[in-house]
């Protein structure tokens, strides 16, 4: 299972539309969730609409929260998306076996029980990757401590799962000129050795949300290919639910 979690506080203003980028990612089997961080600041009607649309296009969900609720929201969204992704895969199977829409609601309650047991089991044990994409434009500066806390908290929840869970972190705009996003942390299963996620962050003005999303999706593709070359069998499994 593959997820991108975008944390932002405003509108994109450079390059490709983030809605298109999210739709592309979803076609590649990556679900995109978005959290809008408010904290007194005003995202505005346009920003709020964009956040919602990115999530829609990315097959995920969106939430607007204050930094205090950030950890819990990030954790909850990731968890729910796992269940949802698996539910969709199971629904497809059910549809081909039973006909109808394959929706759980069409089954009588006593039959749902077994299906949900399978969903829960897969949700707990399948391999999961979450790439965090952090808006590091100037207005996010006072929120970065909360963002880092939320990332560490998410890692803790992921570590508590039975299945292998990995996390990576990007911020945008990138540090080098012309870079849409910069990789802060490559796939990892543990953050306890990492002192600071964003040690020398230069907060700049532009918000290239779309190109940054595209870059993370590309990163997923590359690491997939690397794995395939490495001949890892696990990908087959995540391919099933992904």
């Amino acid at each position: 299972m593959k997820q991108i979690l975008l944390i932002t506080d405003g509108c994109s203003n450079v390059g490709l539309s983030p809605v298109v980028a999210a739709a592309q990612a979803f076609s590649d089997g990556v679900t995109v969730n978005v959290v809008g961080v408010l904290d007194g600041g005003d995202i505005g009607e346009y920003g709020a609409k964009e956040i919602q649309e990115i999530a829609h296009a990315g097959g995920g969900m969106s939430r607007m929260v204050n930094t205090r609720q950030l950890s819990q929201t990030v954790q909850m969204m990731t968890r729910k998306t796992v269940v949802q992704t698996i539910q969709q895969a199971v629904q497809k199977e059910l549809k081909s076996v039973l006909g109808g829409s394959g929706a759980l609601e069409e089954l009588p309650p006593e039959k749902r029980s077994e299906v949900v047991r399978v969903i829960d089991e897969l949700g707990e044990t399948s391999k999961l990757r979450v790439a965090l994409l952090i808006d590091a434009s100037a207005s996010m500066k006072p929120k970065m401590a909360a963002v880092e806390e939320a990332i560490r908290d998410l890692m803790l929840s992921l570590q508590s799962r039975q299945g292998v869970s990995e996390l990576s972190v990007f911020h945008f705009p990138g540090d080098k000129h012309g870079d849409d996003a910069t990789l802060d942390l490559d796939w990892t299963t543990n953050l306890s050795g990492v002192q600071s996620l964003f040690p020398k962050l230069q907060m700049r003005g532009t918000t290239p949300t779309g190109p940054a999303l595209q870059q993370v999706a590309q990163y997923y593709r590359e690491s997939m290919e690397e794995r395939r070359r490495g001949g890892e069998e696990d990908e087959m499994r995540s391919g099933y639910v992904g």
Partner: peptide
Amino acid sequence: DTADLQSEINVLQ
């Protein structure tokens, strides 16, 4: 949510 509630029902059962 049906899946969510069913999951809770499974535990109770």
